[in-house]
């Protein structure tokens, strides 16, 4: 695939699905610096994945797969990446131009999501973004019944935590 086409595709994906990528980065990295780092890594993996992209797969499904796989791998490889970025003579770029959301409730929710197991974290993002059980099953490769069991557990956990938080505030 020509480099120009690849860059056009990447720019197109980042323009239309930037929110999706940022949500994944926020869920897997708590600090702003780390989010920039993860965002760079996801964007790079999207770039690497473009030659293999087939239009039979929905773009959001493809981007979610890349983002989840990259994010789940990310924390262990963070040390190696910092060494490599030093070799390139660059630090994280400060890509996020502003804090994405100031609402404390949203920040609280992202913190709760970040505490989940990486697989449950991925499921939660898909659930909150309106994916069906079948779509979640196809994206992650687990059975729909397994999706249902995990979703039930996640909903119960998040709801209980929100209840405790509201009682604490009151």
């Amino acid at each position: 695939m020509q480099v120009d086409n690849r860059e056009r595709r990447l720019n197109d994906w980042l323009s239309r699905h930037q929110g999706l990528v940022i949500k994944v980065a926020r869920s897997f990295a708590r600090e702003t610096h780390d989010r920039d780092d993860l965002l760079q890594e996801i964007a790079f993996q999207l770039w690497q994945s473009i030659p293999g992209y087939r239009s039979q797969v929905a773009e959001t499904t493809w981007i979610y797969r890349v983002a989840f796989y990259t994010a789940i791998n990310w924390s262990r490889k963070e040390e190696h990446r910092k060494q490599r970025n030093c070799q390139l003579g660059e630090q994280a770029l400060g890509l996020l131009s502003k804090q994405v959301d100031e609402d404390p409730r949203v920040a609280w929710l992202y913190e709760r999501i970040a505490e989940l197991d990486p697989v449950d974290r991925s499921l939660t993002l898909l659930l909150l973004d309106g994916f069906s059980y079948r779509e979640m099953s196809e994206t992650l490769g687990i059975s729909e019944s397994s999706v249902g069991v995990r979703i039930h557990r996640i909903k119960k956990s998040l709801t209980n935590q929100l209840t405790r938080e509201n009682q604490h505030v009151l």
């Binding site: 860059e7 990447l10 720019n11 980042l14 323009s15 930037q18 929110g19 940022i22 949500k23 965002l39 760079q40 964007a43 790079f44 770039w47 660059e90 770029l93 400060g94 890509l95 996020l96 131009s97 502003k98 994405v100 959301d101 609402d103 409730r105 949203v106 929710l109 909150l128 909903k155 998040l158 709801t159 929100l162």
Partner: peptide, 27 residues
């Protein structure tokens, strides 16, 4: 859970929050 969902849905749409030129150069 609907309250959790409504918190999630209350997020502002993200537009041009990422410096795409810098990102592409880095890639």
């Amino acid at each position: 859970f609907e309250e959790i969902q409504s918190i999630w849905n209350s997020q502002k749409p993200v537009e041009k929050a990422v410096d795409e030129t810098a990102l592409l150069n880095w890639i």
